[in-house]
Structures are given as C-alpha cells and as structure tokens.
Computed example of a mutant assay.
Amino acid sequence: MASRSPGALLISRFLQFQPNRTKVILRRVNPLPLHRMDASVTSRKMKERDYLYSVVQNKYVTRRPEIECILTTHVDNLGARGQVVMVDRMLFRQYLYPTGAALYASPQNLAELKNLTEGTIMKTPHALQMYRLLCGMNLPIKMNHFKPWTLSKGHVMAAFRHQGIIIDSQESITLPQEPITNEHNEQVPFEVKVTVNGLDVATVTCYKQPYTTNPDREGELPASLSLPLHRPKEEVAEELKAEGLYYGTTDTV
C-alpha cells in the first residue's frame, strides 16, 4: 500500500483551513454569567438576552483597497494615456488589464512610463473625451432669416452655449474660409474647427437653423435640416481611429 507523503498531507490540511471571505465576526452583547463549580454547564437555560450579538467585522461587505495602475490608453471618466490612477480591483482584473487598457504600477513599468512621457505634453483626462464629443456633433446655429448677417465666432460660441458647452476664447474657433451669410442654403451643412486645450483640432458639423422674431412670418421660414445633436460615440471613435486622430476606449467606467 502506497503511503502518503507528509508534504501532500500538509497541503491538504492547509487547503481545508483556508479562511472564507464571507465570514462574519460577532461579539456577544451580554456576557454569560459564571456557573457554579458543582453544577452542570447545561443546567442553566439560555435566555433571550444571551442571543444578542453585535457585528465586529463583516468580511463579505468589507471593501477591498483599490489598486494603482498605469493607463495605456484613454478611458472615459477615468483618465488619459500615461496617467497613474487608483481603480477598483475587480475593474482592473476583469476589464482594464485583460483588454490592455492598463498595467500594474510596478517600479519597472513606472520607470518605462517616465522615459516614454519625458518631454511630451500630457493631456487632461477629459480632453480626448471632449474632442470626440465635438467631432460627433451636428450643431444647429439659429440665425434670423429675414435680416442680413454674416456668421461670426460669437454666433458659434452662442450656439455651443445653448447646448451646454462653454468655449472660453474665440481664438479656439476657426470659421470656414468662405463666409456664411443669410443666403446660405439651409440644407447644406458646413464645418467649424475648434481647438481643444491648444492641442487637438476638432471638426464640428454645423448647419443653419432659420428663425424669426415675428410670429406672423413663421410660415415663411424654409425647411431646415433635422439631424441628431450627437452621433453614436462608438461610430465617431472608429472613424477617428481609422484616420489616426483618436486613441482610447468609448466605455464609461
């Protein structure tokens, strides 16, 4: 009969006594009274107050500490490529690390990151997200149809502000080379360029949306384009990646 090695026996016993992460540590609220030496331990019946416990530690709901990692690509609502961030362990192990979006922040990886990013301009976490958002916009610009006008940067800033996007300086806006006036065809869109943080130039699709302050002349307004304000971000990201203008993921974490 073959005998079991001490090492195998030791390993089997060790596996049997692995701590369970779902255990709950309790403390009795009311300590039990002392028993007489000449009396049996089971002679006293347990009362209701003896079954009251307080939770000391619940390892099932205890939040595990976050893990430090290096992002290798842009991730929405998390950070830009090259940033060192703290993320949830499950998020890192189930999504970021398997997809190659992040690496462990080991001393070796941190040293390589320092060499790669030395002398380069680091973008803010939301810069690429805003760049992708602008490239996928169909911006309507409301202009009075019955008064002469020429499109200016102030008109574009007002149109962005109406959609909840604030542009601080007119210098970041580049208008089309051919001036857009009130005679422009409402069915023909045009492009306006917006520079994000002085680095990325986003091309925004715009179209004229005629209006009037005179209610009696609303029936004379020509038909305008009916486009969604935002295109699907996955579609925009794939188009920009094909042109080499965008890197990163469109998933929100």
Results as ranks from 00 to 15, higher is better:
Ala2Cys: 11
Ala2Gln: 12
Arg4Met: 12
Ile11Tyr: 00
Leu15Ala: 12
Phe17His: 07
Gln18Ala: 10
Asn20Cys: 14
Arg21Ile: 04
Arg21Lys: 07
Lys23Pro: 02
Lys23Val: 12
Arg27Met: 00
Arg28Met: 09
Arg28Ser: 00
Val29Ile: 04
Asn30Tyr: 05
Asn30Gly: 10
Pro33Gln: 12
His35Trp: 08
Met37Tyr: 07
Ala39Trp: 03
Val41Phe: 03
Met46Phe: 00
Met46Trp: 00
Lys47Gln: 10
Arg49Leu: 01
Tyr53Val: 11
Val55Lys: 07
Val56Phe: 12
Val56Gly: 04
Asn58Leu: 13
Lys59Phe: 02
Tyr60Asn: 05
Thr62Asp: 13
Glu68Thr: 00
Ile70Tyr: 00
Thr72Met: 09
His74Tyr: 10
His74Trp: 05
Asp76Lys: 10
Asp76His: 12
Leu78Lys: 10
Leu78Ile: 02
Leu78Cys: 08
Gly82Asn: 06
Val85Gln: 08
Val87Phe: 05
Arg89Trp: 00
Met90Pro: 04
Leu91Tyr: 07
Leu91His: 07
Tyr97Thr: 01
Ala101Trp: 08
Tyr104Thr: 12
Pro107Trp: 09
Pro107Tyr: 09
Pro107Thr: 14
Gln108Thr: 11
Lys114Asp: 08
Asn115Lys: 07
Leu116Arg: 15
Thr117Ser: 10
Thr117Glu: 10
Gly119Trp: 00
Thr120Ile: 02
Ile121Met: 02
Ile121Val: 08
Met122Arg: 13
Lys123Gly: 06
Pro125Gln: 07
Pro125Asn: 04
His126Phe: 04
His126Glu: 00
His126Val: 12
Met130Arg: 14
Tyr131Trp: 13
Arg132Asp: 03
Arg132Cys: 08
Leu134Ala: 07
Met137Arg: 15
Met143Asn: 05
His145Ile: 01
Phe146Thr: 10
Thr150Cys: 12
Leu151Val: 01
Ser152Gln: 15
Gln163Lys: 15
Ile165Thr: 02
Ile166Leu: 01
Ile167Asn: 01
Ile167Phe: 04
Asp168Pro: 01
Gln170Asn: 13
Gln170Met: 09
Ser172Pro: 06
Glu178Gln: 06
Pro179Phe: 02
Pro179Asp: 04
His184Thr: 11
Glu186Trp: 00
Gln187Asp: 03
Phe190Thr: 12
Lys193Arg: 15
Lys193Ile: 02
Asn197Leu: 03
Gly198Pro: 07
Asp200Ile: 11
Val201Lys: 15
Val201Asp: 06
Ala202Tyr: 03
Ala202Met: 15
Thr205Pro: 09
Tyr207Asn: 10
Gln209Thr: 03
Tyr211Asp: 03
Arg217Gly: 01
Glu218Ala: 08
Glu218Tyr: 03
Glu218Asp: 03
Ala223Asp: 08
Ser226Val: 05
Pro228His: 14
Leu229Met: 12
His230Pro: 05
His230Gln: 09
His230Asp: 11
Arg231Ser: 13
Arg231Asp: 09
Arg231Trp: 00
Pro232Asn: 14
Val236Ile: 10
Val236Cys: 15
Leu240Tyr: 06
Leu245Ala: 04
Tyr247His: 14
Gly248Glu: 01
Thr250Ala: 09
Val253Trp: 06
